[in-house]
Design a protein around this nucleic acid. Structure first.
Lengths: 322, 322
DNA sequence: TCCGACTTGGCAAGCGCTTGCCATCCTCGC
DNA sequence: GCGAGGATGGCAAGCGCTTGCCAAGTCGGA
């Protein structure tokens, strides 16, 4: 019922006729050991089915072979896809991933970072709302990559938020709309602020801010009607679903009377009625990039920021202006 | 840039004027140490901000303070909610959660269990498709609780699959439907088999099996039309979305001409057009129960199975038979 | 042929914690 | 007042691995 006895370094060493230290080197220092010896060791490893004990490895060397991902809401498929992608990538480097859901609360975010950081090699924190300096402190020296948030001298990967707005507005204008509104997200979100700034520059009306939920979108319909907008771009897909719901409730036909664009392109956005036109937030690409970036940080590179381009996904919730 | 020096047991011991072993006992063996001494130690712990080193703890004692959750698809909100709930509960016991996405493939499932098990105290595996015996072997002695799957002499928590069918069919019949079909899920799923069995008993027609995806549902519409069914209960909500989409494409009005019931009650099911009537799969309750069950296993209890009751959620995709 | 420089692998000291084993000390019951 | 037995806390042996240090071996050039 207890653990089947696991082979240790010593077992391998004995079998290969070398010192345990040598086995360790073969496994963690490519090139440090003579090729023939290494081969013999590898054979022994395979023969006894050796699997390193991570706890011992961490204790002795500090490496954990684990990364943490902090998300504001794992229930949101956008973040779920990021996690999934990170997990896939981590598997390839035989690392495990710890996840924590901060429920969008700064304190939870910080406590998650703080409690996880000692037990991982690095962290990926998505859409943080806590001050970056606090997150850094909580990480206690462990490398952190931020997703969809940037700051001075930190590693980050984010979607080009300006482009999200640009692309959506361009799409709408090409359809002949000129009464366009964009919906602001919570001002605690970096992405929301970025978009808002660009919307200002573009001279587009702004609604909200509202919480980025179905209810948030639902509540928007009055503002939309009052403002006589013919097109609206929401903060994310779920909010767009709310707008769609509100429109249906009011008997407003989409896209005939109102065009709506979401953001993120979660899988469900293709399943609504009508299917949602949206701006793809490239969750998988973002997730992958974040893991890669973390890897480079771990390898000693200095913080970098990678920007990924969003993409229009035209479906049926937008149409020519009436 | 490296770790801020962390207080160790020895620091605490020195400060409290006791032996490190004593500190360890205070922290892990309630009652084993004299109350006054314990208080002094606790004070020292607080004073130096001691945080146990999990790696050392695991190495010496075997406890990891970590649990693993294996899901077939984290992108599916049903599983995301389970994970979220497990994570919340784990946080309260100051445990961390490792997640792996098996992409519904038995080999991935097994390799996830195998690679994670040495580094966790126990595992929760959701909707496993691999043989239970193989999972048990891969777990290498670590306790496992299965979600939505049961087997002989294993701990499990699952929704009463029979009730899912019963409840859906009853709802439909009460609406006057008698041309009812239920959609079979992949036969690798225990839940699918259970439902199918009950559908047989109830004398309800069965469609499929189809993959539990949007496309799967979409493809079903022909069968539905051909069979002249007036109501259909799908394997899960996403499949129902597909049916809804197919109906829309064919100009079939829901619920006027066709009633559809989903299963799971993922948040998005309330956001469709029309909002989906569905059978709530109690994701949060299941997640919580799974963690509790794992806890009791860890405490030495023997495997138990907890069954949770599904619940009808009536929205607008079902209506009286035409 | 000899020497210096580089390779290679052994050695052992820990990493921070848990726990079995003991030596004390205290508490009762008689 | 005394001995038994429980309560308490010290002690030290590891858990399995990494890594700095060093000795021995290897090789090529002068």
């Amino acid at each position: 019922m207890t653990n089947r006895d696991t082979a240790t370094l010593d077992d391998v060493a004995r079998r290969a006729g070398v010192h345990p230290g040598t086995v360790s080197r073969v496994l963690t220092r490519p090139g440090r050991v003579n090729e023939k010896t290494a081969a013999r060791v590898q054979a022994a490893v395979a023969a006894v089915g050796y699997r390193p004990n991570l706890a011992a490895r961490q204790l002795a060397g500090g490496k954990t072979s684990r990364v943490a991902v902090i998300v504001p809401d794992i229930t949101n498929p956008y973040f779920a896809e990021i996690v999934q992608e990170v997990q896939l990538g981590a598997r390839d480097r035989s690392e495990a991933v710890l996840v924590a859901d901060s429920r969008q609360a700064a304190p939870d975010e910080l406590s998650a970072v703080e409690s996880l950081s000692p037990n991982v090699d690095g962290l990926i924190v998505c859409s943080p709302v806590a001050a970056l300096a606090m997150v850094r402190d909580a990480a206690d020296g462990k490398p952190v990559v931020y997703v969809n948030r940037r700051g001075r001298n930190v590693a980050a990967v984010h979607v080009d938020q300006g482009a999200v707005v640009t692309v959506a507005v361009a799409h709408l204008r090409s359809l002949g709309h000129d009464r366009i509104a964009i919906v602001r997200g919570p001002s605690a979100f970096w992405s929301a602020e970025q978009r808002s700034r660009l919307a200002g520059k573009l001279g587009v009306a702004q609604l909200g801010p509202v919480s980025p939920t179905y209810e948030g979108g639902l509540a928007l319909i009055d503002e939309i009607v009052d403002g006589a907008f013919t097109a609206v771009a929401t903060f994310n897909d779920v909010t767009a679903f709310g707008v769609l719901g509100g429109a249906t409730a009011r008997g407003i036909r989409v896209p005939d009377e109102l065009s709506v664009i979401g953001s993120d392109n979660i899988p469900f956005s293709a399943m609504t009625n009508p299917p949602l036109t949206t701006v793809d937030g490239r969750a998988r690409q973002v997730g992958r990039a974040a893991l890669d970036l973390l890897g480079s940080l771990l390898a000693g590179d200095s913080p970098r920021v990678v920007v990924v381009d969003p993409a229009m996904v035209t479906r049926s919730s937008t149409g020519v202006a009436s």
